[in-house]
Design a protein around this nucleic acid. Structure first.
Lengths: 243, 243
DNA sequence: CGGCAAATTGACACATCTCAAAGCCTGTGG
DNA sequence: CCACAGGCTTTGAGATGTGTCAATTTGCCG
């Protein structure tokens, strides 16, 4: 198999790809794989030899807490088009697992291929680098949200971000999307207890901001939700620039 | 002027630099500058044409909160040897300011030079990329700390990390270091109020874990402080690997 | 000595956690 | 078609952590 169309779209939202860039991307061989809910896609540790990009569903970076078995913190969510653990290509090891959130499909890319790109395709190299820099910008925004927002607004921020990211690659529209996360998992993302997440969901519902049945989320009033969350999509870099 | 020795040491702690790599690094022209406390080193916005590396003192990434003038969140601290806003090289713009924490000195590197490196020096390119990936790993660890630690332990984690980073480039030793941060600034980093930070400091002092006079911090019991903070330096990638 | 910013303390309000219980889905077996 | 089990969601009440506001103390510098 080959590079996902989502990833090409992810890059094209942000820079101009030449014919050559696209041809090079499409020539990269990949290995396809499916995962069940909670399954480990990339284990933590030192010997990663490949990285993966999301094709369908979502994945999460899950940090286990030492000395508190069973407890964990989720520091990132990845959606179709994300080159998930590209970080592992330049790091000696990952300090967290990448797990499947709900059912998911990914394409694995061998690090040998990535190394070839860094040897011969400077522009593509900068674009891959950019993708990890955007992940870092998202991390920073999560830090800002955690430090400055109360639970409802914090949850609202996550919903605004996910919808924007999904919509930007064509994986969501009409302010609706599939969010295959349990409230317990949301709690691990936002740093609250599941009970408190539940109350935050209840408040957003009561304010008429969202509808949420099972894994189906619909944002009823984008303006008010985004204002509550102080959401500004600037950090997602959804604009063409030359790199 | 040229690349700081601290940055060379930063890289050498993590990978093997060839003679050629080092020569290339030292050939990069830079511009030196000094900053007063709170001064903006790199303004946010779209037109960054250069990035900076820390030479002396510290700097911080400061996010202003929209609609709440004067309030801010600090999402990263940088110490000597850090290539601070390398992110700006591959991003279209920065969504935060980089400010000086206390007095500081930096060396600016023009993006034209960085682009040359990505065209001609794949190994150095991967090392620069690595430096931004380590920043991202630090962001993730801050997210984990924010979600899982109480105020004293959270503060303890920051102290452990800063000492480790400073010591790794030779800018601190004997469990002492200079921390030019006001409690108000610590509050913006940790996501608490200054008053609560003060109580966290008091608790660490009362437990005999630290001594702290003015900007001078001394860690009295590294073992217990690190255990309290569940600090594991793995994420700082302080070990040689081939990239 | 005076003046200012920062650090420190106290009392009370609010946000979030903890523990316990009840309600709701969904799949399974009778 | 019903009964049941199990996981998830929802609700309630009381404990703990953190925020807010006001006041005092400390330390530095003129």
């Amino acid at each position: 198999m080959a590079i996902t169309e989502y990833f090409v779209r992810y890059l094209q939202r942000r820079d101009l790809l030449s014919e050559c860039d696209i041809a090079c991307l499409r020539a990269i061989p990949t290995q396809h794989a499916c995962f069940r809910p909670g399954e480990v896609i990339v284990p933590r540790g030192r010997m990663a030899t490949r990285s993966c990009m999301m094709l369908r569903g979502m994945s999460a970076r899950q940090h286990e807490l030492v000395g508190r078995p069973g407890e964990r913190v989720i520091t990132a969510l990845h959606v179709p088009g994300d080159f998930v653990d590209l970080h592992a290509f330049v790091l000696a090891g990952l300090e967290h697992d990448v797990i499947s959130v709900g059912e998911s499909e990914v394409e694995f890319v061998d690090h040998v291929e990535l190394r070839q790109i860094t040897q011969n395709f400077p522009h593509l190299t900068r674009l891959l680098w950019m993708s990890t820099a955007i992940d870092a910008a998202i991390h920073r925004q999560w830090l800002v949200a955690a430090a400055s927002l109360r639970s409802s607004a914090h949850l609202a921020h996550l919903l605004c971000e996910l919808y924007t990211r999904l919509a930007s690659v064509g994986a969501a529209q009409d302010h609706r999307f599939v969010l295959p996360l349990l409230q317990k998992e949301l709690a691990d993302i936002l740093g609250y207890t599941p009970i408190h997440v539940n109350r935050a969901v209840r408040d957003l519902r009561a304010d008429g901001l969202i509808r949420w049945n099972g894994a189906e989320v619909e944002i009823l009033d984008w303006q008010r939700l985004a204002r509550l969350a102080r959401f500004d999509p600037e950090y997602l870099e959804l604009g063409r620039a030359r790199r």
